[in-house]
């Protein structure tokens, strides 16, 4: 497996004349770990993710990526956005195949195998592979989006509040799925969320962001392997409580600033 380490050094991102969305932000993401970024809306967490994905060019500072293959260029990232962002005229199968098509990669059989493998990994029944996105439920579309993010075998997975639009039941199912995927593949993952319980359940480390800055960085002692049942213990409640307080303190300090 390709390890990858990402480090952001004094990154500044500004849109027009507004105050910076990322304000000399530094962050190191260790390989094979899930890091959650939480914070109030508009704190810049989505911009942070887009900067790492290469969708936003920072004005100052730099984003350095290191893979085990050496060199920093050409990091493969898989991104799941807030919405499934599927092409409505392509079937489930064709949507998941898209990233491989764009790379003009491999023989047909290899591509087919990979697509099938990812669709099975996100528990989509074979009967649904030929359907168009509009024939699927919201939860199923999100699974397709996740399969598409995984199909290039990325060394890093970036999840931008992917389950925010789902109801609690589906959200829990998707959390379970991502945990399961991480526990089998150990992909370095950045999860942007505004749901504290989700952050505590899913991550090794939780970073709190307010107004473009990192204001707290907490290791999550909740033991692995985890599942939805991990939410029941007292330890979960303790971590939740601690981070919740940190978040409030940070938010209040920002208001006074």
């Amino acid at each position: 497996m390709m390890l990858s380490r990402i480090s952001l050094q004094d990154v500044v991102v500004r849109f027009g004349d507004h105050p910076p969305v990322l304000d000399s932000l530094s962050l190191d993401l260790a390989p094979e770990k899930i890091v959650s970024v939480i914070g109030p809306s508009g704190c810049g967490k989505t911009t942070l993710l887009r900067t790492i994905a290469g969708l936003v060019e920072p004005q100052e500072g730099r984003v350095r990526t290191v893979t085990s293959a050496g060199g920093g260029a050409g990091l493969e990232v898989g991104v799941v956005f807030q919405e499934p962002a599927l092409l409505p005229w392509r079937t489930v199968w064709e949507n998941v195949r898209l990233p491989l098509e764009l790379r003009g990669r491999g023989g047909r059989a290899a591509v087919d195998d990979e697509v099938a493998r990812q669709l099975s990994a996100v528990h989509l029944a074979q009967a649904d592979w030929g359907k168009l996105p509009r024939q699927l439920s919201g939860g199923m579309r999100m699974r397709v989006s996740l399969a598409r993010a995984l199909v290039t075998n990325p060394s890093m997975l970036l999840l931008d509040e992917p389950f925010a639009a789902l109801d609690d039941m589906l959200r829990a199912q998707m959390n379970q799925l991502v945990l399961e995927l991480w526990q089998t593949r150990r992909r370095t993952t950045l999860l942007v969320t505004h749901n504290l319980a989700e952050a505590v359940l899913m991550s090794h480390r939780i970073v709190i962001m307010v107004k473009g800055r990192l204001v707290a960085d907490v290791d999550n002692p909740l033991p692995w392997p985890r599942s939805l049942d991990s939410r029941a213990g007292t330890q979960f409640a303790e971590v939740y409580q601690r981070i919740s307080e940190l978040l409030w303190t940070a938010a209040e300090a920002e208001v006074k600033r």
Binding site: V77, A85, L102
Partner: peptide, 18 residues
């Protein structure tokens, strides 16, 4: 085009032609 769909293509470094 929905900007999010464009982002999907940009993440995978799609060419203008693609």
């Amino acid at each position: 085009i929905d900007p999010l769909l464009l982002d999907v293509f940009r993440v995978h470094r799609a060419s203008r032609w693609q």
